[in-house]
Every structure is written in structure tokens, then in C-alpha cells.
Design a protein around this nucleic acid. Structure first.
Length: 569
RNA sequence: CGGGGCGUAGCGCAGUCUGGUAGCGCACACGGUUCGGGACCGUGGAGUCGGAGGUUCAAAUCCUCUCGCCCCGACCA
């Protein structure tokens, strides 16, 4: 491809709205443009990247016997009503009516539609298992689109769905996907973790996410470097570091106007970890007192799983229910349901005395009060691993893929049934598996860039090699550039089953502009043809990532270039 | 949805407080000199100052409403 025939609108200055590195670089290097909040145009360069990613997706899906199909984006409401998601999902679903007044929606995902198809077409266990996938646009009216193409309202997703006759089959399909995903992300040159995740509204028992560590990520993952425990903070377990056991006697202490853990802790000069934080909550079944160690925070999702939806009581509600202000409440003497974090089970603590301006010191859990014990806290840096008790660390990450065991969540309501080998009608056991190619691309940029621009992995770069003829008015330069361009483009790239894609920067611009743009765009190999080196019968080959340059005699140019290309990481 | 910020030429910004003929840099077009890390000189084109209403002799500037975009949080199948 010749640069002058290809639309690459690089910018000298970055629009202010860009914050994330991938957003800035993709804008600056001429890969994307924003149409509106959460809506992006993929320009020729980024479309090439996405196509390369999609090609990898296709190859690895086919390798596990998945079959590509394509589904409508516009869906009738009825199917979503059947599974209930029409009602469960709120503003995040784009809804509309057709001219006949029928309710429709734009697909946020395709469990319903895929299951509908299976229910219509599959009758017998002999037709199972099936894995169907598509690379298809999804639409979600995100509350807050952000970070360029990391979180958008319209995005392409590779989504696959497995249909099996039993749990064993699901296990197989799930593992096939896990293996395929491992290969896909590795081929795309990403650093990533497979983490345990919250199945959430997808239902089902088991789910994992593929997480690419990056400061731009929206998720926090908890990592144990020793035993390999990795989980999304949404579900991560952790053991907080233990306090030394103090020999306090039970006593009331005067703490005038000291309400928060921080205030009391500073007032008494005692570390917050020796406090019990008491939160009065209101669930559908009434008041609940939740207890956490003073240095920890409540994990609302964990608690929701135990007591259902709840909210934190307002100041006035605390006062009327307990006759004491929120800052002085505690479990001792509390009559009602108490749920406490496991880390409080041992030790001696200070907590509210249920009496204005007093706290109580020397409280021993299980002796001075009883509670239901659960994991309620948010794991934090420095906590210990639930498996091996090594120290945990927390890292930000981009969710680039996920795999879910769905079970019968969709097959039962949508009647996706089959007859087994005994003639018994049973629901199909399903799984669903997603990858966001644009997120893969963005994560790749987040993880691979320097101060000059993007550094693409070879497998997903928009081009393999860029030729930079520095002086387009020099006949020798142009002739050599044209010859190399023609010949290298014909060379077969056995790694990815295609010819090498070469970009020839044939613009009549100053060398500095070509160098800057080449580094910005991030093609793995640059071939620099300058008059200076031409006089001495060599050209230069430069690796984008390391900036190493090689002087190559013109006579052996093609062979050497290809060799360097293959030897580049 | 709560909090914060910003909308002035394609991009980056000044001008707004204190109302008085809309500016700068880059980019773009033309001419010339340049040509190994975003050149220089000259000339030129380009703006409903996000939109609507109001105050005023006069509004980018003051007031009211509204739309859009970004960031933090909530949410995220």
C-alpha cells in the first residue's frame, strides 16, 4: 500500500478529550475518530488491525470446531421478554418500535437469539454438541462510555455459544474455549490473566474473565504471585493481616464528638484495625447490622449475595431505630441480625457503645456478641492469599474476554430441548464466550507503546513493514523503494498464511515527518532508504520496538529484511 | 443518575472576571529557499464564538434555558 493512496490522518496535537494512552495514540496516529460519545469510526489503519485480530479469532474458533454464523442486530422484544431480561435490564438496552408498533431492541448480546435458533433446530442428542459464533456488532446504552474504544456504546464482539447435552459436555466446551482464548491472546501479544469472576446476571455457576493488566483498565484484579490465585476484586477472597492480640479489659471510654473510625482512632492513637466498624443497613427483611474491621471496606456485592438488595440506613433512621447517633453504634447489646466479616472472629476490639459520645474497648467477638460470619470486605493490597497466605497485590486490568457457564438459564425459558438416547426430553446445557476485538487492540496499545507512539505485535500490526524513502525527488531512492516494495510484498509469510503487507511512505515530505509518523503508527519494521547510505550501497532496517538499526547491503536487501522481520519479537 | 470541567477556524489555545470592529500557534492553498527526526520566508483562504431566548445603544463577554463532550463516582448481562 502506498501512503499517498491510503487515508492516515495523523495529528500533530492530540484533542483534549483523550485521556487514556490508547485513546490518545489511536487518535494521533490516525486510527480512529469519534462520532459521538461512545461511538467511534475505525479508519483504514485500525480496521486492518481489527481484521487481523478477527482473523486470529476465526482461526482459533474453527480449531475448536466452532461454526461462524451471523445474527440480526435488531431483535423482537418477545424473545427477551421470555427470558425476563427485557424487564431486568433497564436503560442499558436500546429499545424502539417498528412501524407496526411492535417492541424491538438492539442486541446487547445474543444468548436469547442463539438459544432461540437452537430451540427451533435441534431435536436430538445426535446433533449435539454445537458451538456457534459470530463477530458481530453489539449495542449498549452505556451509562458512561469512556477511554476511547475501551468502553463504547456500539462495539464488535466475537461471541460464541455452546450447546451440550450434559454438564460434562459443557465442561469440555468451556475448556476448549479457555484453551482457544489462551492461544488468541498470546498470539495477539498481550500480557493477560485468566481470573475467576462473578457470573453476575449471566447466571450460571462458573465464569472467568481474561484480563489485560493496564492502568487504563476499569477492573481491579487480586493476584497471588506465589500460588497463582487470581480473581476479580468483585469476588476475590482475602485474609487481612492479623493484629497482635491485646489484653484489653472491657471498658467504656469517653469519645466526645468522635464518630468515624478515623476520628476515634486518632483520638485514642490506636490503629483502625483494632476497631469494629458497624453499619446499619436496611434490607427487604428489615434492619441488619454489618460489621467490618476498621481498616476495611464493605463489599456491597458480597453482602447482597447474603441478604439480598439493601441500602445503608440514613442518619435519622439510625437514630430512631437505635436511639443513638450513627457514630456510636456497635454490636454489643444489639438485638437483631448481625453479619460480621470473618476477619473479626479473632481479636479484641473497640467499637461503638450504643451510647452517645462513648465507645467500648476490649470487645471480644463470640463472647460479647454473636454474629453470622461471612467474607464481607474488599480485598486490598497487602492482604493475604486465601489459599497459601502469601501477600496479595492488586492490579488494574482491561477485560478483554470472558467465558461463562450458563447451564439452563436460557435453554429452559426458551424451550431449547432435545431428546437424549433414552428418549427423555432435556434442556441443553449452554455456555457463552466473548472477546472484544477493539478492546484487544486498545489493550495492545496500552501495553505496548513508548514516548514516540504505538508498538504493534507482528500478528496484529496494520502492516508488517514500512518503507521510508527519505527523498522522493531522488531517482535512485524511489527506484529502490519501488523495487523493494514490489518484491517484499510478494514474499509469503508462513507464520500467518499470507503475504507480507508493506506500507510505502511515498509522500513528498521531509524525512523528519516520515520518521515521526512511522514511529507513531507503530509498524514493526522500518526500512530507511536515504541518499547518504545509498551512496555506500546499503539501506537501514529498524525495529520499531527496540529501535535497533541494521545496515544492510542493497544486494542482499530482500533476504535480510525478511530475516530481520522473522527474528523480530 | 450525583459531583467536577470544557464548548471561540481542521487541531491546540488566548480573549469572558471589568460588554465596545474575533486573535495566536500548528494545519491547509500558492510562490520561493530547503531536505536523515514534525524546516524557513512571503502571500492567502478559513470562525453562525455549541444553540435559543433575554438585558443593553452595543454581547464571545452579563442573565435564563438548552444541547454536546470529557473526567470522578454509581452502574456495567
Amino acid at each position: 500500500m502506498r501512503f499517498t493512496k491510503f487515508f492516515i490522518p495523523t495529528l500533530r496535537e492530540i484533542p483534549t478529550e483523550a485521556e487514556a494512552i490508547s485513546h490518545k495514540l489511536l487518535l494521533k496516529a490516525g486510527y480512529i475518530r469519534q462520532l459521538a460519545s461512545g461511538l467511534y469510526i475505525f479508519l483504514p489503519l485500525s480496521w486492518r488491525v481489527l481484521n487481523r485480530i478477527n482473523r486470529i479469532l476465526n482461526e482459533e474458533m474453527v480449531a475448536i470446531n466452532a461454526q461462524e454464523i451471523t445474527m440480526p442486530i435488531l431483535h423482537p422484544a418477545e424473545i427477551w421478554q421470555t427470558t425476563g431480561r427485557w424487564y431486568e435490564i433497564k436503560e442499558e438496552m436500546f429499545r424502539l418500535k417498528d412501524r407496526g408498533g411492535r417492541d424491538m431492541c438492539l442486541g446487547m448480546t445474543h444468548e436469547e437469539i442463539m438459544t432461540w435458533l437452537a430451540s427451533k433446530e435441534i431435536r436430538s442428542y445426535r446433533e449435539l454438541p454445537q458451538i456457534w459464533y459470530q463477530i458481530q456488532t453489539k449495542l449498549r446504552d452505556e451509562a458512561r462510555p469512556k477511554s476511547g474504544i475501551l468502553r463504547t456504546r456500539e462495539f464488535i464482539m466475537k461471541d460464541s455459544y455452546s450447546f451440550d447435552m450434559d454438564e460434562e459436555g459443557l465442561e469440555r466446551s468451556y475448556n476448549l474455549h479457555a484453551n482457544a482464548y489462551h492461544k488468541i491472546f498470546t498470539r495477539c501479544g498481550l500480557k493477560f490473566f485468566k481470573v475467576e469472576s462473578d457470573p453476575g446476571m449471566m447466571g450460571g455457576a462458573c465464569a472467568h474473565e481474561y484480563m489485560a493488566p493496564s492502568p487504563a483498565g476499569e477492573d481491579d484484579i487480586v493476584i497471588c504471585d506465589k500460588c497463582g490465585y487470581i480473581a476479580n476484586i468483585e469476588i476475590a477472597k482475602s485474609i487481612p493481616s492479623l493484629n497482635q492480640k491485646l489484653q484489653w479489659e472491657l471498658e467504656e471510654i469517653f469519645t466526645p464528638e468522635k464518630r468515624t473510625v478515623k476520628e476515634v482512632s486518632e483520638f485514642l492513637n490506636i490503629d483502625p484495625s483494632f476497631f469494629i466498624k458497624s453499619l446499619l443497613l436496611i434490607s427487604s427483611e428489615g434492619y441488619v447490622l454489618a460489621l467490618l474491621r476498621g481498616d476495611q471496606d464493605l463489599h456491597e456485592k458480597k453482602l447482597t449475595k447474603i441478604i439480598g438488595p439493601f441500602r445503608i440506613a440514613q442518619k435519622e433512621e439510625v437514630l430512631s431505630h437505635l436511639n443513638v447517633e450513627a457514630g456510636f453504634i456497635g454490636p454489643v447489646g444489639y438485638k437483631g441480625r448481625i453479619i460480621a466479616d470473618l476477619s473479626l472472629k479473632e481479636g479484641v476490639y473497640i467499637t461503638g457503645a450504643n451510647k452517645m459520645h462513648y465507645h467500648i474497648k476490649g470487645v471480644r467477638p463470640e463472647i460479647d456478641f454473636s454474629a453470622e460470619w461471612h467474607d464481607l470486605h474488599i480485598a486490598c493490597d497487602g492482604d493475604h492469599c486465601p489459599n497459601c497466605s502469601n501477600t496479595l497485590r492488586i492490579e488494574k486490568a482491561i477485560e478483554i474476554g470472558n467465558i461463562f457457564k450458563l447451564g439452563t438459564k436460557y435453554s429452559i425459558p426458551l424451550n431449547a430441548l432435545f431428546l437424549d438416547n433414552k428418549g427423555v426430553e432435556r434442556p441443553m446445557i449452554m455456555g457463552s464466550y466473548g472477546i472484544g476485538p477493539a478492546r484487544v487492540a486498545a489493550a495492545a496499545v496500552e501495553q505496548n507503546h513508548d514516548e514516540d507512539g504505538i508498538i504493534w505485535a507482528k500478528a496484529i500490526a496494520p502492516f508488517d513493514i514500512e518503507i521510508l524513502p527519505l527523498n522522493m525527488s531522488d531517482k535512485n531512492t524511489v527506484e529502490l523503494a519501488d523495487a523493494l516494495y514490489a518484491n517484499i510484498s510478494e514474499i509469503y509469510n508462513s507464520l500467518t498464511d499470507r503475504n507480507l503487507d508493506v506500507l510505502l511512505d511515498d509522500r513528498n515530505v521531509r524525512p523528519g515527518v516520515k520518521f515521526k509518523d512511522a514511529d507513531l503508527i507503530g509498524i514493526p519494521i522500518q526500512i530507511i532508504i536515504g541518499e547518504r547510505s545509498l551512496k555506500n550501497n546499503y539501506i537501514e532496517v529498524k525495529r520499531r520496538r527496540t529501535k535497533e538499526t541494521f545496515k544492510i547491503p542493497i544486494k542482499q536487501a530482500e533476504a535480510e529484511i525478511v530475516k530481520i522481520y522473522y527474528e523480530t519479537d
